[in-house]
Amino acid sequence: MARSTRKQEILQAALACFTELGVEGTTIEMIRDRSGASIGSLYHHFGNREGIIAALYLEGIGEYAALLEAGLVCTLEAEACVKLFVTCYVDWVVANPDWARFVLHNRGRVEAGECGDRLREANRAHGQRIGAVLKRHREAGAFRRMPGDCFVSVVIGPVHDMARNWLAGRSGTPLAECRELLAEIAWDSVRAG
């Protein structure tokens, strides 16, 4: 979380509480105490605890999306684009492990909640921007033929699984050490011929 505004301070406090006590074990009063914010400030910025959860989730996926999209703007080759999906994912997870754990475990909750439409819209817009970048590579024949949603799963699936295991402490290999290998595997899985 880059900026340090009152809203960001509340989100940082919420993430710390969720990490220590779990989402279900955290009350809005705990977040208020941790952040030093007034209850009015919490409700002004987020409406309720579910609003805090959704804001934290949306900001996390937004930060990763911005990192990826910024890199894609500068990347011209198909191979570099595919590898960037993986390396940005690894870099964000390694830099933000608590936030990444939170995002991994709370998607369904946010999707089903009052901010579900905002999440779906953010994902749709991000998908369109990414799709526009990848379209020219697909049309140039750089990728093997497969449905778009399958493409994303093939590219992100292995790194996502490794990240989940690393975040859960089930992997003895640091995620950062697998960064280039997973990027190479992603490229080998989708490149044409």
Rank of each mutant, 00 (worst) to 15 (best):
S35Y: 07
V23D: 02
Q8F: 08
I156F: 13
I130M: 11
A183K: 02
I156L: 14
A2T: 15
A2G: 11
E139H: 10
G22E: 06
T75N: 02
T27L: 04
H105I: 06
A176S: 08
F85M: 03
D161R: 12
A112V: 00
G47R: 04
F151A: 05
A70E: 15
N48D: 15
E9V: 11
K83Q: 14
W99C: 14
E121P: 10
F46L: 00
E184Y: 02
A140G: 08
C178Y: 05
V90C: 12
A186V: 05
A132S: 12
G141C: 09
E50A: 13
E63F: 04
D161Y: 12
G60S: 09
A37N: 05
P174E: 13
V190T: 01
F102C: 01
V152T: 12
A122K: 09
A54N: 08
G157R: 04
T87I: 08
L15N: 06
L11Q: 07
S153L: 12
V155H: 00
P174M: 02
G113C: 04
D33T: 11
T19G: 04
I52Y: 03
A2Y: 10
G40Y: 03
V103A: 09
A125C: 12
L76S: 14
A122V: 07
A13Y: 00
R129F: 07
A95S: 15
I61Y: 06
R32V: 06
T5N: 03
K7A: 12
C178R: 14
L182D: 01
G157K: 09
N48C: 02
A183P: 10
V154F: 08
T26F: 07
N48K: 01
I39V: 15
W187A: 09
D91S: 15
M162N: 10
R34M: 09
A54P: 07
V103H: 01
T27F: 08
R170M: 11
K7C: 07
E184D: 14
L21F: 13
G141Y: 06
A2M: 13
A140W: 01
V103P: 00
L68M: 11
I130T: 15
Y57N: 08
R6G: 11
L175K: 06
E29D: 12
A16E: 15
I10H: 00
D98Q: 15
G108P: 01
G60M: 04
D149V: 12
S153T: 13
G108L: 11
S171L: 15
T87C: 13
V93M: 11
A183D: 02
R179M: 03
E24L: 07
N123G: 15
N123Q: 14
L104Q: 10
S35T: 04
G40E: 04
V94I: 08
A14L: 08
P97A: 10
I10C: 03
A80W: 03
G113D: 04
E69T: 14
G169Y: 05
G131I: 10
G127M: 00
A112N: 08
E50G: 14
E139A: 13
T75G: 01
L104H: 14
